[in-house]
Design a protein around this nucleic acid. Sequence first.
DNA 1: ATCGTAATTGCAACCAGTTGCTATTATATA
DNA 2: TATATAATAGCAACTGGTTGCAATTACGAT
Lengths: 138, 138
Amino acid sequence: MSCSTILKQKGYKMTPQRRLIVEYIHDNQSHLTADELISFLETRAPGINKSTVYRTLDLLEESGCVVKSEIDGHFIYHHAEEGHHHHLVCRVCGKTQDCNENLFSSVKDVLANRYGFQADFKHIMITGLCSACRKKSR
Amino acid sequence: MSCSTILKQKGYKMTPQRRLIVEYIHDNQSHLTADELISFLETRAPGINKSTVYRTLDLLEESGCVVKSEIDGHFIYHHAEEGHHHHLVCRVCGKTQDCNENLFSSVKDVLANRYGFQADFKHIMITGLCSACRKKSR
DNA sequence: ATCGTAATTGCAACCAGTTGCTATTATATA
DNA sequence: TATATAATAGCAACTGGTTGCAATTACGAT
Ligand SMILES: [Mn+2]
Ligand SMILES: [Mn+2]
Ligand SMILES: [Zn+2]
Ligand SMILES: [Zn+2]
């Protein structure tokens, strides 16, 4: 189901600003930052305010349309239909590598059984040392 | 080994500002925010600047003396000797519950074997639905 | 004890993101 | 199509955190 449809079903209004934001997210399937989106919008809808952008992104997250993740004190967003995956982020060189979405399934089970907690584990940024940097530091 | 000793060994200077910050972290074994620290310092060393506080916290993290974690776009810090543990944070009610530090050991092994990646998993904030909120939503 | 120097501080300007408020607007209804 | 109203947008002020820079200071060497 499209993002606009979901928003309408939840009783939210479809404004030109929201249409553009949703359009950008659909056309641009990778990770995006609010800043990226803001500079796109400056060309298509000059005058649009950043608070509108941030509020729309939060609305889309809350509605399950986008996934919001934080890394290093900043946020990134991606279309939820892209599927869940995780990232291995090297603390030394900064390089990022994708990894399988099932990685945490056993941890999820443990948490459900032991604490009754239903963990999200949607798009986790795992920091550590990549193999290249580990070799160098030995 | 004490935080001051570690800093000295790394060739950093011990300033009155750093001494106070280290003292506070030692006396205050739980999670702390930069703001908390700043208001403590206002009483003990009026005039100390927030940039000094943030830079010192980063220095301590880099030196392995404190662990820095982010949750919801903010940072919290704690003395590294406190031991590693993780938190289950409910996305609905916001409640937090501690959980065992070994939780991720199997994931760590998988990442080491499959990707050669040495994951940190030091103080992870796991978001999800707590058992109380899960029952309510059914 | 004094000196030289690199490290550190405070400052001010900045950045990403948030919030309360008022004016505007999408949409449901008549 | 016109109206009523709740939702939304823009604005401006704010928050937590960061950065470049010039002045100060810790500390090793003399
Ligand atoms: Mn991703
Ligand atoms: Mn903790
Ligand atoms: Zn690396
Ligand atoms: Zn809860």
